[in-house]
Amino acid sequence: MSGNSSTSRKTPDPVPASGTSPPLGDKRAVPGLALYTVLVPVLAGAAVLTAAACAPAMGVFLAVLTLALTAWSARRLAGLAGRAEGERCLLTAKLMQSQKLAAVGELSSGIAHEINNPLAIISQEAELCGALVEAKGAMDPELADCLAEIARQVARGRDITRRLLDFSRKMEPVTQLESLDRAVEDMVVLVEKEARLRNVNVIRRYDPDAPRLLIDVPLLRQAVINLLTNALDALEEKDQAGGEEAHGTIVVSTWRSGPGEAAITVADDGPGVARENLARVFHPFFTTKPPGKGTGLGLSITHNIVERMGGRMEVVSEPGQGAAFTIHLPLKGETP
């Protein structure tokens, strides 16, 4: 029952967004190496020596055999080398993505700190300005309106800087044993009510044997509501593009994504993520929403939260067919 949403959307290149190293099979290639570096050359040598000592017909046969053996061996070695190179590239890409996100995070928190001070001064000066005009008895509605607008925009700026600082704050998670669906359900209920008004169907596919995990419950809830908000926004985008028959579906599933892992997937059937944007969706300030609609921090904060909990995130999307965001969490706190 679980995990359908993510498997049905599998595209060739899911973008891993975490530096945690996956179990790769490079070690498996090593035992086979002896076959190609020792056994095959010895056999070839033996065939040459035997050919020198026996009849020409047998020599031809041995030559063909040696040819086949060395060709096969070379082919296998080339395959192994290719696979190792592919795995190395994947690891490098993951590492680079992780480092890039860390650097961008650091940069943005620096900017947030710098911008907070001028914001504070602007709001104080605006307040003082209002008080001065008021004291002179010269306050008119238009001026009051202007000052209120300044205060509103400062508050908006502050909200962004606060979220940026939250994003880079390295608070240690406080973990409690909780089952995944219980941690997720309240956020789903919350979203479901608004989703219904927007003609969006929310489907739950919780794993009935969901393990209990050691997780930072409110942090995980924050990550989940960010994914749900994102899915709702994506469906709204489709609504605007598709006219009246458009109505969307969000599937929330909990499932076992590996032997030591549990996962939550939030999938929508919205417009999906363009291929060229897949690698950037977790970057702070990256957004495809119209100006003023989103700061582009939701997914990067989510990614950050998940990494802090020792997990990793993945996005799978086929343009035009929706997107599935998955949070993978380690099963370290599982109870028997």
Partner: peptide, 15 residues
């Protein structure tokens, strides 16, 4: 949803 997301980001335990 917006208020929920804001509440959770402000440090609420649950919504």
């Amino acid at each position: 949803v917006e208020s929920g997301a804001r509440g959770m980001s402000l440090g609420a335990y649950d919504y």
